[in-house]
């Protein structure tokens, strides 16, 4: 398969952004974005797991017999999730508490299992690494944007820095309903940008 490394890398960040376009990994996206910092940390933890699993599985892809592919994949993914868990617990204990059960739940994030099955099991190590990086960064990007929006609308802060006084914020954006609503509008904005682009192309053809 001939493909360009840059394309594989950028694919995950924009054209096939896991959250905003493919709608993968919704649970952590909604749950950990009450502040920009937690959203970004979740994104980076997922990036690490995705990258490492992609690399290891693309190395081992020919050694794993057909019948146990799922078992083997889940085993490798959960190993890296546990590694991420322990590292965050040791070096960033506050974040370990904030992310709570969503840290171990990275295991069942369909983004990771999806990429491993669709991409890493069929491509070389180099491209799988790039795909893991791109997709992970795309995920991190989406979570950071969502977290920043929610934190800003809810408490008037961005990454903990006050932008406008807290009492102008609508706290509902930090709470559960705000997660759903903000993500809904964010996806709608991305959709409308996509629609405009396809319309432009159609106009040019005319």
């Amino acid at each position: 398969m001939k493909q360009s490394g840059v394309k594989v890398f950028l694919n995950g960040i924009f054209k096939e952004n896991p959250v905003l376009v493919l709608f993968l990994g919704m649970c952590p996206t909604l749950a950990t974005t009450s502040t920009a910092l937690t959203g970004m940390s979740m994104g980076l933890a997922t990036l690490f797991v995705l990258f490492a699993s992609n690399v290891v599985i693309s190395i081992l892809k020919n050694l794993i017999p057909e019948r146990i592919t799922m078992t083997a994949y889940v085993m490798i993914i959960s190993t890296f999730v546990t590694v991420a868990e322990m590292l965050i617990h040791a070096y960033y204990p506050a974040m370990y508490v904030s992310l709570g059960i969503f840290l171990p739940l990275i295991v069942v994030n369909c983004l990771i299992l999806g990429r491993v099955q669709v991409f890493a099991s069929k491509n070389s190590v180099f491209y799988s690494a790039l795909d893991g990086l791109g997709m992970g960064l795309g995920f991190t990007f989406a979570l950071t944007v969502l977290g920043t929006l929610r934190e800003l609308l809810g408490t008037g802060k961005a990454f903990g820095n006050t932008v406008f006084p807290e009492h102008y914020g609508a706290l509902i954006f930090v709470l559960a309903p705000g997660a759903f609503i903000t993500l809904g509008y964010l996806i709608a904005v991305v959709n409308s940008a996509k629609l405009r682009k396809t319309e432009d192309i159609e106009d040019n053809i005319d």
Binding site: P65, E66, M75
Partner: peptide, 23 residues
């Protein structure tokens, strides 16, 4: 490189290998 066959021996070996790696 061809994909390894799904024989019992291979399955056991590969799973053991991955477990060792995880461990």
């Amino acid at each position: 490189m061809k994909k390894v066959k799904s024989s019992i021996l291979n399955i056991v070996l590969v799973l053991a290998g991955i477990s060792a790696f995880a461990g």
